[in-house]
Amino acid sequence: MLARRIIPCLDVADGRVVKGIHFESLRDAGDPVEQAARYDAEGADELVFLDISASPDARRTTLDMVSRVAETIFIPFTVGGGIRAVADAGAALRAGADKVAVNTAAVRDPSLVSRLADSFGSQCVVAAVDVRRTGGRLAVMINGGREATGLDGIGWLAELASLGAGEILLTSMDRDGTGTGYDLDLLRAAAAAVSIPVIASGGAGGLPHLAEALDAGAHGVLAATIFHYQGSSLPEARAYLRAQGYPVRP
Protein backbone atom coordinates (compact mmCIF):
# COMPACT_ATOMS: atom_id res chain seq x y z
CA MET A 1 0.00 0.00 0.00
CA LEU A 2 1.49 3.29 -1.09
CA ALA A 3 0.83 6.23 1.17
CA ARG A 4 -0.58 9.33 -0.45
CA ARG A 5 2.09 12.01 -0.34
CA ILE A 6 1.81 15.39 1.33
CA ILE A 7 4.51 17.61 -0.08
CA PRO A 8 5.39 21.07 1.17
CA CYS A 9 6.97 23.23 -1.48
CA LEU A 10 9.67 25.81 -0.99
CA ASP A 11 9.58 28.42 -3.73
CA VAL A 12 12.94 30.09 -3.31
CA ALA A 13 13.98 33.46 -4.70
CA ASP A 14 17.19 35.21 -3.77
CA GLY A 15 17.84 32.76 -0.96
CA ARG A 16 14.47 33.14 0.76
CA VAL A 17 11.27 31.11 0.70
CA VAL A 18 8.58 33.18 -0.97
CA LYS A 19 4.97 32.63 -1.90
CA GLY A 20 2.76 34.61 -4.20
CA ILE A 21 -0.62 34.59 -5.84
CA HIS A 22 -0.87 33.59 -9.52
CA PHE A 23 2.97 33.53 -9.41
CA GLU A 24 3.07 37.25 -8.50
CA SER A 25 2.99 39.50 -5.40
CA LEU A 26 5.62 37.39 -3.69
CA ARG A 27 5.96 37.65 0.05
CA ASP A 28 8.60 36.29 2.36
CA ALA A 29 8.05 32.93 4.06
CA GLY A 30 11.33 32.36 5.81
CA ASP A 31 14.70 30.73 5.51
CA PRO A 32 14.80 27.63 3.27
CA VAL A 33 16.98 25.57 5.59
CA GLU A 34 14.88 26.35 8.66
CA GLN A 35 11.66 25.64 6.80
CA ALA A 36 13.02 22.38 5.42
CA ALA A 37 14.07 21.23 8.89
CA ARG A 38 10.64 22.08 10.26
CA TYR A 39 8.83 20.19 7.51
CA ASP A 40 11.09 17.16 7.94
CA ALA A 41 10.43 17.19 11.70
CA GLU A 42 6.68 17.40 11.05
CA GLY A 43 6.82 14.32 8.85
CA ALA A 44 6.56 15.71 5.33
CA ASP A 45 6.60 12.87 2.81
CA GLU A 46 8.86 14.74 0.41
CA LEU A 47 10.14 18.23 -0.08
CA VAL A 48 10.16 20.23 -3.29
CA PHE A 49 12.56 23.16 -3.75
CA LEU A 50 11.91 25.38 -6.74
CA ASP A 51 14.34 28.16 -7.47
CA ILE A 52 11.66 30.35 -9.00
CA SER A 53 13.99 33.13 -9.99
CA ALA A 54 16.38 30.80 -11.84
CA SER A 55 14.73 30.67 -15.24
CA PRO A 56 13.75 34.33 -15.59
CA ASP A 57 17.10 35.51 -14.34
CA ALA A 58 18.98 32.91 -16.36
CA ARG A 59 20.76 31.79 -13.23
CA ARG A 60 21.74 28.27 -12.28
CA THR A 61 19.93 26.66 -9.40
CA THR A 62 21.34 27.82 -6.13
CA LEU A 63 23.33 24.71 -5.44
CA ASP A 64 24.80 25.75 -2.14
CA MET A 65 21.32 26.31 -0.74
CA VAL A 66 20.26 22.93 -2.18
CA SER A 67 23.16 21.27 -0.34
CA ARG A 68 22.31 22.95 2.93
CA VAL A 69 18.67 21.89 2.66
CA ALA A 70 19.64 18.32 1.67
CA GLU A 71 21.87 18.06 4.72
CA THR A 72 18.98 18.80 7.08
CA ILE A 73 16.35 16.33 5.84
CA PHE A 74 15.78 12.56 5.59
CA ILE A 75 13.04 12.55 2.97
CA PRO A 76 13.05 12.56 -0.83
CA PHE A 77 14.08 15.93 -2.16
CA THR A 78 13.14 17.37 -5.55
CA VAL A 79 14.99 20.38 -6.93
CA GLY A 80 13.86 22.48 -9.85
CA GLY A 81 14.43 25.85 -11.40
CA GLY A 82 17.12 26.54 -13.93
CA ILE A 83 17.85 22.93 -14.90
CA ARG A 84 18.56 23.18 -18.62
CA ALA A 85 20.93 20.32 -19.28
CA VAL A 86 21.90 16.87 -18.08
CA ALA A 87 24.94 18.45 -16.44
CA ASP A 88 22.73 20.83 -14.43
CA ALA A 89 20.69 17.88 -13.20
CA GLY A 90 23.83 15.97 -12.31
CA ALA A 91 25.05 18.92 -10.27
CA ALA A 92 21.72 19.13 -8.41
CA LEU A 93 21.81 15.40 -7.67
CA ARG A 94 25.40 15.63 -6.42
CA ALA A 95 24.31 18.52 -4.19
CA GLY A 96 21.83 16.17 -2.54
CA ALA A 97 18.68 16.22 -4.67
CA ASP A 98 16.96 12.89 -5.29
CA LYS A 99 14.93 14.14 -8.23
CA VAL A 100 15.09 17.09 -10.56
CA ALA A 101 12.15 19.05 -11.89
CA VAL A 102 12.24 20.52 -15.38
CA ASN A 103 9.72 22.90 -16.82
CA THR A 104 10.81 25.69 -19.19
CA ALA A 105 13.79 23.75 -20.54
CA ALA A 106 11.61 20.72 -21.31
CA VAL A 107 9.32 22.85 -23.46
CA ARG A 108 12.24 24.44 -25.30
CA ASP A 109 13.86 21.05 -25.87
CA PRO A 110 11.65 18.03 -25.11
CA SER A 111 14.57 15.66 -25.71
CA LEU A 112 16.00 16.92 -22.41
CA VAL A 113 13.38 14.81 -20.62
CA SER A 114 14.51 11.64 -22.42
CA ARG A 115 18.16 12.42 -21.87
CA LEU A 116 17.57 12.96 -18.16
CA ALA A 117 15.61 9.71 -17.94
CA ASP A 118 18.36 7.84 -19.79
CA SER A 119 21.05 9.33 -17.58
CA PHE A 120 19.43 9.06 -14.17
CA GLY A 121 16.28 6.94 -14.56
CA SER A 122 12.70 8.06 -14.94
CA GLN A 123 12.21 8.04 -11.17
CA CYS A 124 14.60 10.99 -11.03
CA VAL A 125 12.73 13.13 -13.53
CA VAL A 126 9.82 15.29 -12.45
CA ALA A 127 8.11 17.17 -15.24
CA ALA A 128 6.76 20.39 -13.78
CA VAL A 129 3.95 21.89 -15.81
CA ASP A 130 2.27 25.24 -15.18
CA VAL A 131 -1.10 25.68 -16.85
CA ARG A 132 -3.52 28.56 -17.13
CA ARG A 133 -7.07 28.39 -18.47
CA THR A 134 -7.27 30.72 -21.44
CA GLY A 135 -10.30 30.94 -23.66
CA GLY A 136 -11.50 27.44 -22.86
CA ARG A 137 -8.04 25.97 -23.34
CA LEU A 138 -5.47 24.68 -20.87
CA ALA A 139 -2.44 26.67 -21.91
CA VAL A 140 1.03 25.56 -20.87
CA MET A 141 3.01 28.49 -19.50
CA ILE A 142 6.78 28.66 -19.00
CA ASN A 143 9.41 31.02 -17.72
CA GLY A 144 7.78 31.34 -14.31
CA GLY A 145 4.34 31.75 -15.86
CA ARG A 146 5.38 34.75 -17.94
CA GLU A 147 5.39 33.12 -21.35
CA ALA A 148 2.67 31.22 -23.20
CA THR A 149 3.77 28.25 -25.29
CA GLY A 150 0.83 27.33 -27.52
CA LEU A 151 0.98 23.83 -26.08
CA ASP A 152 -2.18 22.19 -24.84
CA GLY A 153 -1.89 21.12 -21.22
CA ILE A 154 -3.18 17.58 -21.46
CA GLY A 155 -1.39 16.81 -24.71
CA TRP A 156 1.85 18.04 -23.22
CA LEU A 157 1.44 15.83 -20.15
CA ALA A 158 1.02 12.78 -22.35
CA GLU A 159 4.12 13.72 -24.33
CA LEU A 160 6.14 14.21 -21.15
CA ALA A 161 5.11 10.77 -19.94
CA SER A 162 6.10 9.19 -23.24
CA LEU A 163 9.44 11.02 -23.15
CA GLY A 164 10.25 9.28 -19.87
CA ALA A 165 9.19 11.63 -17.09
CA GLY A 166 8.67 9.71 -13.86
CA GLU A 167 6.00 11.98 -12.47
CA ILE A 168 4.15 15.19 -13.21
CA LEU A 169 4.04 18.18 -10.90
CA LEU A 170 0.97 19.96 -12.22
CA THR A 171 0.39 23.53 -11.10
CA SER A 172 -2.73 25.50 -11.83
CA MET A 173 -1.64 29.12 -12.18
CA ASP A 174 -5.27 30.17 -11.87
CA ARG A 175 -5.47 28.66 -8.40
CA ASP A 176 -1.90 29.34 -7.24
CA GLY A 177 -1.91 31.12 -3.89
CA THR A 178 -5.67 31.69 -3.91
CA GLY A 179 -6.61 29.06 -1.34
CA THR A 180 -9.77 28.26 -3.33
CA GLY A 181 -8.92 24.60 -3.87
CA TYR A 182 -7.07 22.67 -6.55
CA ASP A 183 -8.34 22.69 -10.14
CA LEU A 184 -10.10 19.33 -9.90
CA ASP A 185 -11.17 19.15 -13.55
CA LEU A 186 -7.56 19.64 -14.52
CA LEU A 187 -6.44 16.87 -12.16
CA ARG A 188 -9.08 14.45 -13.43
CA ALA A 189 -8.09 15.10 -17.03
CA ALA A 190 -4.39 14.71 -16.16
CA ALA A 191 -4.89 11.48 -14.24
CA ALA A 192 -6.85 10.07 -17.16
CA ALA A 193 -4.19 11.10 -19.67
CA VAL A 194 -1.07 9.63 -18.04
CA SER A 195 -0.29 6.54 -16.00
CA ILE A 196 2.61 8.15 -14.11
CA PRO A 197 1.89 9.86 -10.79
CA VAL A 198 0.42 13.34 -10.89
CA ILE A 199 1.14 15.70 -8.01
CA ALA A 200 -1.50 18.37 -7.54
CA SER A 201 -0.30 21.93 -7.02
CA GLY A 202 -1.94 25.32 -6.80
CA GLY A 203 -4.91 26.31 -4.72
CA ALA A 204 -4.81 24.37 -1.46
CA GLY A 205 -6.45 26.55 1.16
CA GLY A 206 -7.68 23.99 3.66
CA LEU A 207 -7.40 20.34 4.51
CA PRO A 208 -10.55 19.26 2.60
CA HIS A 209 -8.86 20.53 -0.56
CA LEU A 210 -6.16 17.91 -0.11
CA ALA A 211 -8.77 15.14 0.00
CA GLU A 212 -10.56 16.53 -3.07
CA ALA A 213 -7.34 16.41 -5.07
CA LEU A 214 -6.70 12.79 -4.09
CA ASP A 215 -10.27 11.92 -5.09
CA ALA A 216 -9.65 13.57 -8.45
CA GLY A 217 -6.75 11.18 -9.08
CA ALA A 218 -3.69 12.97 -7.70
CA HIS A 219 -1.08 10.67 -6.16
CA GLY A 220 0.17 13.43 -3.94
CA VAL A 221 -0.67 16.94 -2.93
CA LEU A 222 1.75 19.80 -2.93
CA ALA A 223 1.03 22.87 -0.87
CA ALA A 224 2.89 25.93 0.23
CA THR A 225 0.56 28.62 1.49
CA ILE A 226 -1.39 26.50 3.98
CA PHE A 227 1.77 25.10 5.54
CA HIS A 228 3.79 28.32 5.41
CA TYR A 229 1.20 30.73 6.78
CA GLN A 230 -2.22 29.37 7.51
CA GLY A 231 -1.50 27.32 10.56
CA SER A 232 -2.36 23.90 9.16
CA SER A 233 0.47 21.63 10.17
CA LEU A 234 1.51 18.48 8.39
CA PRO A 235 0.44 16.28 11.35
CA GLU A 236 -3.00 17.87 11.15
CA ALA A 237 -3.14 17.20 7.42
CA ARG A 238 -2.18 13.56 7.92
CA ALA A 239 -4.68 13.11 10.74
CA TYR A 240 -7.41 14.66 8.61
CA LEU A 241 -6.71 12.46 5.61
CA ARG A 242 -6.39 9.33 7.76
CA ALA A 243 -9.75 10.06 9.34
CA GLN A 244 -11.21 10.36 5.84
CA GLY A 245 -9.85 6.90 4.99
CA TYR A 246 -6.86 7.83 2.83
CA PRO A 247 -3.66 5.81 3.26
CA VAL A 248 -1.11 8.17 4.78
CA ARG A 249 1.95 7.62 6.91
CA PRO A 250 1.37 7.48 10.66
Binding site: L2, R5, G121, S122, G166, E167, P197, H219, G220, P247
Partner: peptide, 10 residues
Protein backbone atom coordinates in the same frame (compact mmCIF):
# COMPACT_ATOMS: atom_id res chain seq x y z
CA UNK B 1 0.26 -0.07 -12.09
CA UNK B 2 2.87 2.62 -12.81
CA UNK B 3 6.47 1.43 -12.84
CA UNK B 4 8.76 2.50 -11.21
CA UNK B 5 7.09 1.88 -7.88
CA UNK B 6 7.72 5.18 -6.14
CA UNK B 7 6.65 6.29 -2.72
CA UNK B 8 6.12 5.45 0.91
CA UNK B 9 5.10 1.82 0.96
CA UNK B 10 3.90 -0.08 3.98
Amino acid sequence: LPVPHVGWAE
